Amino acid sequence: MSTILPEAAVSASDVPVKPARRTADLVAAGLLTPDAAAAVESVTRRYAVSLTPYVVEQAAQSPGGPVYAQYIPTPEEAYTAPGENGDPIGDDVHSPVKGIVHRYPDRVLLKPLHACAVYCRFCFRREMVGPGGDALTADELAAALAYVREHPAVWEVVVTGGDPFLLAPRRLAEIVQGLAAMGHVGVVRFHSRVPMADPARVTAELVAALRAPGLATWVAVHVNHADELTPETTGALARLADAGIPLVSQTVLLKGINDSAAALENLFRGLVRHRVKPYYLHHPDLAPGTSHFRPTLDEGRALVRSLRGTVSGLCQPTYVLDIPGGHGKAPAAGEWVSPTAEGWEAADFRNQKHIYKD
């Protein structure tokens, strides 16, 4: 990363910690020098910046470290590599109504909003999310829920976005109760960065809103490095787990942040220790301006192989490649993805083959 670091980050004890939503805020927080802020101004006009006060404090404790590098913009983001595009996993082609993505027969994504508490620099939806991003109106949410109701093959609803934990508990409860009233829906799964980025938001009221009789609620937490497992964030995880909500994790394999066996071991063991089952290790998607985060598939496969026998099966997620073009996920460590003369051949869940180029 080429970000110019300040000589000393501002201590949380020096000034009240505020959210950072502009480059000027990052300078004020001691996270960028003025020169570095000027160097990324064009980047931040295109891709949203937002750090919660909690993340500002965590990033300031270790400038250039694994938390800092996930959230602070760099000049490298201005470069769009060949193959990168604004919808790298093909959500749009599988969206029959606003807020719904129906890629697999038995499950849908429900995206009630496009805002997040924080904006990761490697986000695969970075062209679609941002402050003031689209949220479904009451009529649009009703139409999205009606789509689920009218498709009895849908057994699982994945609520994502954006970050659904930004919704008020009342609105979360309305979604959960609406799904629980549909006899064919058995599982609702929430995907959220909030437990890691704004753990105080995971209140007893929010946790209670996630549950309804007759519906199994799961939460998938986005976490990329063991440094994110602090007393505050593990407390948020405990509030969810103690309420009987099963927890899984999603991790993105990121060059310079967690692309070592030691970093992954520490993260996955830490998650299991706090009752979170590592679920997916994502190969980074081909989102614009993210090539500096992306290891090669060969590197990722070697890392995953190195974990076999080193950590418990409980600590082993599935390493997955989201096949560009909307074809779904392929396990990337085994026979589903194989090298060819053209690059890599990835088999989707229908065993149709697609070429992927690093």
Rank of each mutant, 00 (worst) to 15 (best):
L206Q: 02
S249K: 08
V219K: 00
R275E: 13
H274N: 14
A209C: 03
A261T: 15
L271T: 03
L254F: 12
A226N: 00
V272L: 14
L210Y: 07
P246S: 13
P231C: 08
I245Y: 05
L281A: 05
V252P: 00
D259H: 14
L281C: 11
Q250C: 04
R275W: 13
L237P: 01
S249P: 04
G235Q: 05
A220Q: 09
A238M: 03
V252F: 12
H222K: 07
G256D: 13
V221F: 06
G214A: 12
G270F: 07
R211K: 15
N258G: 06
S249N: 13
V219Y: 07
V252T: 15
T233C: 09
G256E: 08
K277M: 12
I257R: 02
A226D: 09
H222S: 13
P246W: 03
V252L: 06
S249R: 06
E232M: 11
H274I: 01
L253T: 04
R275D: 09
A204Q: 14
A226M: 00
L271C: 12
R275M: 04
G256H: 09
R275F: 12
Y279D: 12
H225D: 14
L271N: 05
H222E: 13
R269M: 10
V223E: 01
P213C: 08
A220D: 09
A208N: 09
T234R: 10
A236W: 01
V252W: 01
G235V: 03
I245C: 08
H283K: 02
T233D: 07
V221N: 03
I257P: 02
D259P: 03
K277C: 04
A212T: 06
Y280D: 03
V272P: 00
L254E: 07
W218H: 15
T234Q: 11
H274C: 07
K277Q: 14
A236D: 02
A241H: 15
P278L: 09
S249L: 05
A243N: 11
A262F: 03
E232D: 15
D242K: 11
E205K: 10
K277Y: 11
A209I: 01
E228M: 12
D242A: 14
L240A: 10
G256N: 09
R269K: 12
A220G: 08
Q250N: 11
E232A: 15
T230S: 14
T233E: 08
A212W: 11
F268L: 04
A238C: 01
W218M: 11
A263V: 05
K255N: 12
L264M: 10
W218N: 13
L229W: 11
T230R: 11
A209R: 00
L210V: 05
T234P: 02
H282A: 05
G235P: 05
L267V: 01
A208Q: 15
L253S: 03
Y280G: 00
